[in-house]
Amino acid sequence: MNAYAKYYVPEQSPWPIIGAVGLFGIAFGAGHFVIELEKGQATHGLYLLLAGIATILFMIVGWFRHVIIESMSGLYSKQMDISFRQGMSWFIFSEVMFFAAFFGALFFVRVFSVPWLGGHDGGVTHQILWPHFKAQWPLIITPKGDKTQAMPWLGVPLINTVILLTSSVTLHFAHVSLEKNKRKTLTVCLGLTILLGLSFLFFQATEYYHAYTEVGLTLKSGVYGNTFFMLTGFHGLHVTLGSIFLIVLFCRVLKGHFTPDKHFAFQAGSWYWHFVDVVWLCLFVFVYVL
C-alpha cells in the first residue's frame, strides 16, 4: 500500500481575526474620511483609516513570518503544496470576480444608464430628470452643473502601462532564473520588478494629485469620477499589496530561500503580479482609451 503523505495542520492562528479588524478599520475609516473631507470637517476617519492600514501591515508581517518559519522547518509536504496552489487559484479567481463587478458597473452605466438618460429609448423620462443631459462618455458635467475633464490615456496612464508590462517581463525572467538556479540574475530581475512596481505607484499618486488640483476630477465629479477612482484606486491597492509580496520574496531570495524544485511562494507572487498587470490592461482600455 502507498503511504499517505503527511499533512501539517497548524495551530489556531490570531491572524485572520486581526486582518478582519484591520479591513474593517480601513473600510469604516475611508468612508468617514471621504465624507468628512467633502464637508470640510475634522478628519477623524483618517486616523481610523491609518490604524486599519497599520493593522493590516502588522498582520501581513506576522502571518508571512509564521508561514516562512513553517516552510523552512520542513513541515510542508507535497500535499500541502497542492493545497497552497488550490488556495491561491481560488483567491485569484475571487479577485477576478471582484474587478468583474466594478467593470460590470462601468459597462452598465455606459451602455444602459447614459443612453437612457439621453432619451435614446424614445421615452421622455430624461426631460424630467435631466432636461439638458447629453448622452456622452465620459460625463464631464455633473447634474449640479460642475464641469471636469476626462483623464487622457496619453502621458502617465501610457507610461504606467509600459511600466507594468515591463515588470511582467522582468518577473518572468526572475522566475526562469530561479528554475535554472541562476541566483544573481534572479536577484537583479526581481529587484527591477519591485522598482517598476513602486514607480507605477509614484506615477499614479502624481496622476491623482494632477486630477484633484488641475483637472478638477474628484470623487464629486459624478459617475465618471466615481468609477475612475474606484477602479484605478482599487487596482493601485492591489499593486501596493503585490509590491509588498515581492519585497518579502526579495528578502527571502537574499537569505538563500527557494530552490529550483521548491518555490511555490515565489510562483504565487508571480501569479498575483501577472493578474494585476492583466487588470491594468483592461483598465487602460476601458477607463482611459474607450
Rank of each mutant, 00 (worst) to 15 (best):
V279S: 03
V188C: 06
E36F: 09
V9P: 01
S221R: 02
I18V: 12
Q136E: 15
V67R: 13
V215W: 07
A54D: 06
G52D: 06
D81L: 14
W280S: 05
V67G: 02
V162D: 04
G25N: 05
S199Q: 09
V287G: 02
L186Y: 10
K6N: 12
V287A: 06
F202H: 10
H120F: 14
V289Q: 06
L249R: 00
A20D: 11
T213E: 15
T213F: 15
I140G: 01
T166G: 04
F64S: 06
H126E: 09
F98K: 00
Y224V: 05
F284P: 00
I17C: 10
L49N: 00
F203R: 00
G191D: 07
L46F: 15
E179N: 10
Y208G: 01
R252Q: 13
W63I: 04
P157F: 05
I17Q: 13
Y212L: 14
L178Q: 04
G87V: 04
Q12V: 14
A54V: 09
V162I: 14
Y208I: 12
R252W: 13
G22I: 09
I35T: 06
G104T: 07
C251S: 11
H235Y: 09
L217G: 01
W90N: 06
Q127S: 08
A150T: 01
V279M: 09
N160M: 15
L249S: 02
F108T: 03
S199Y: 12
V276L: 14
V278L: 15
K144A: 13
G45E: 02
D146K: 11
V188W: 13
V188Y: 11
L201T: 01
S168I: 11
H235W: 11
E11C: 05
I140T: 11
T161I: 07
F229T: 03
V289S: 03
T55E: 11
V61T: 08
H120G: 04
S13C: 12
G40K: 03
M80G: 06
I35G: 01
I60C: 10
T55L: 15
Q41G: 12
F102C: 05
L37M: 13
V285P: 01
D261S: 12
F234E: 04
L117H: 02
N226D: 12
T206Q: 13
T125G: 14
V67C: 07
L231Q: 01
T259I: 10
T166K: 01
G222D: 03
I69K: 11
S243E: 09
C282P: 01
Y76E: 07
T55D: 08
V289E: 05
H210R: 11
I69P: 00
I26Q: 02
Y47N: 06
W15H: 06
A135H: 00
S89A: 14
G29I: 06
T227F: 15
T259G: 10
A20W: 15
E11D: 14
Y212H: 11
H235E: 08
F245L: 14
T213D: 13
V278R: 04
